[in-house]
Design a protein around this nucleic acid. Structure first.
Lengths: 210, 210
DNA sequence: ATCACAATACCTATTTATAGGTATTTTTCA
DNA sequence: TGAAAAATACCTATAAATAGGTATTGTGAT
């Protein structure tokens, strides 16, 4: 086997770092050689360790994930970087593209997706978490660029539809008019280019947002 | 109707117990007659209650799920036991078989699977969660995969619903009456214990049917 | 041969979803 | 601050789904 990839993990919560370490514990192709609790920490670790892949939390203190990423990329252009984020916020997409990172994944993505993202990275590809792709205008790599972006509200409504709620029930839960819910549903169906709720739920399920 | 099955739930997190109770709240065929927060608790409850089915968390304190299970089985061989686990860990499979339990299900399995597992149990079958079966290489004895008892026709209709077809379209494709399609849909919703097509497609998607 | 189940079909009533609009207010960002 | 995007709301009409039934025919297993 090749030498394992040397990985740095950075997050301001030690527990989260431990969780990630656990995932890697039975994956000898990756070796965690450094941990950091802040952006400044990360840069220090880079001075003493050889890092192949850095996994950075967006919401890290001092220089945040994206800022840290840019600095690293300038000094160590060969290092691949994965950005982890807590919430599916679309506005960070531009920052992500700017930062030069190779992967953008939700924290609650689960083990399988984390490993898939790493695999993409080591193969020189860019990986964007499925949930994040839904809310961002990301061109699909296979020519057909399905370009849509679901808003926060639309994602809320999808989540409730997946819980078998009717428009009227959703309206009550969100304190808005049933008319509004139906408008949102109309827009969602158009954006995702599906014909009905069945298609919508199937799409959402496959994309990992429900 | 027959007398409801008397159920005990054991988990060291009260919130989880409450969640399970909610699932049963509109299933009068099951009645929760006891709760326990530890293995020792469970054994105490057995002394005062008649229990038909015990639902035990693996990671319970004192005697854990499997140990508790063995003790119960020795004293109350007629009691059926369902073991719940947080993670899809294969190494517990042997313990499960040893323990004499009747069902082994992931905690995040969802309502439908929980109910299906219970149905299997009361029919004297052994049920192993789909995700667990995948990692455990359990031979497909007759009855395992059939436990959710969807008919061939019902599966066809689910597949077409996932392709965004309406009842009328399905009727045309299958050369049957729309009435018949709707009857099937009614039966499917009942069997899977979902409220509408959204729930149906979500379930089908999670189960790998579509 | 009979029994259970699957598949079929029909009926009615009600609820919910979809499709076509228009239009105002609020938020976000350049 | 001004434009764009998001969220809101309303209206109407039709299509579709859901829920409650009942009932007949085919089919495979004991």
């Amino acid at each position: 086997m090749n030498k394992p990839y040397q990985i740095l993990i950075a997050d301001d919560h030690q527990m989260f770092i431990d969780g990630i370490k656990l995932i890697f514990s039975n994956h000898p192709e990756y070796e965690i050689v450094a941990e950091a609790l802040s952006g400044k920490d990360v840069l220090d670790r880079f001075k003493t360790n050889k890092i192949d892949i850095a996994i950075l939390d967006v919401n890290m203190p001092k220089p945040n994930g994206f800022e840290t990423c840019k600095i690293i990329k300038k000094q160590y252009p060969d290092c691949k970087i994965m950005i982890l984020t807590m919430y599916a916020e679309g506005q960070f997409l531009n920052e992500f593209i700017d930062s030069g990172a190779s992967a953008y994944v939700l924290k609650n993505a689960g083990k399988a997706e984390l490993l898939r993202a790493l695999e993409s990275i080591v193969n020189g590809q860019v990986y964007i978490g499925k949930q994040l792709k839904l809310i961002a205008d990301v061109p699909e790599k296979d020519g057909f660029s399905k370009s849509f972006s679901l808003t926060k509200r639309e994602l809320e409504i999808i989540a409730l539809l997946a819980k078998e709620k009717t428009s009227a029930e959703i309206a009550e839960i969100l304190f808005i008019s049933t008319y509004t819910v139906n408008t949102h549903r109309k827009n969602i169906l158009n954006k995702l280019d599906v014909k009905n709720t069945a298609g919508l739920i199937k799409y959402a399920s496959e994309s990992g947002i429900v």
